[in-house]
């Protein structure tokens, strides 16, 4: 079974070396690829200097475009499983195997979830996460406890579907759509670290826009999307 770790990176020169070195040392049975999303800092140079596997996008495509690049690569190279792994050090490598064990039971997508056996802490961000969960429950009937988790593994069929189609961003609305289309999804408990370096992409107004987008998308748009 060929397994690929996709690491989308935008302005992550501070974190990328630590993250990739850990994967290279402890998880050499997995292939990995860093997708540099047209970073303005030295992310690409740092990767090349360290001899990392790198796909270097010449322009910034955003997370969805960068991650799709990784999946396209996985699709062309014939990988069986691909996992999205954040370059900022929030995701912990020890959970990759746990997620792989779960997807090998035959699921299409497995989410590394912070809240399977643990309770959600109370904060504004978690309120947003809860609202998205409720919207997904209403439209799909299935409970996803951590819909915004970025740590997701996809099987071969999903890799192909994500790689070749429009509107397959790695976001909760796509997950919601796929559940409706009959994809099987499971969650396993993981822990995540707080960011060590760099700034989070989501500030308050961006978060509000994100919520609006997700809610309209999950509650309305995804219900009449046609699968190709």
């Amino acid at each position: 079974m060929k397994k690929l770790i996709i690491i989308p990176a935008y302005n992550e020169e501070m974190n990328i070396v630590r993250v990739v070195n850990e994967i290279r040392e402890k998880y050499s049975q997995y292939d990995y690829v860093v997708v540099n999303d047209g970073s303005k800092d030295n992310t690409a140079k740092v990767c090349i200097d360290h001899g990392f596997e790198l796909i270097n996008l010449p322009v910034n495509l955003g997370l969805a475009g960068a991650f799709q690049t990784g999946l396209k690569y996985a699709y062309i190279k014939g990988y069986d499983y691909a996992i999205q792994f954040d370059a900022d050090g929030q995701h912990k490598t020890e959970y990759i195997d746990v997620i792989l064990d779960e997807i090998e039971k035959g699921y299409d997508i497995v989410i590394g979830s912070r809240f399977v056996s643990k309770k959600k802490p109370f904060s504004l961000r978690m309120l947003g996460s809860n609202i998205i969960s409720v919207a997904m429950k209403i439209t799909t009937g299935k409970t996803i406890k951590d819909p915004t988790s970025g740590m997701r593994m996809f099987n071969k069929q999903m890799i192909e579907e994500f790689a070749l189609n429009m509107n397959y961003g790695p976001e909760p609305d796509t997950i919601s759509y796929l559940i409706k289309q009959g994809a099987t999804i499971s969650e396993v408990q993981v822990e995540m670290d707080e960011r060590l370096e760099g700034e989070s992409y989501l500030n308050f107004s961006r978060s509000m826009l994100y919520m609006l987008r997700m809610l309209i998308s999950i509650l309305f748009i995804q219900s009449f999307r046609k699968r190709k």
């Binding site: 609305d173 309209i216 309305f220 748009i221 009449f224 999307r225 046609k226 190709k228």
Partner: peptide, 18 residues
């Protein structure tokens, strides 16, 4: 809605029109 259904536009842009 029909145009969105057949994936003629990206969801980001569809939101405004919806």
């Amino acid at each position: 809605v029909r145009k969105i259904r057949y994936s003629k536009l990206q969801i980001e842009y569809a939101i405004f029109w919806i």
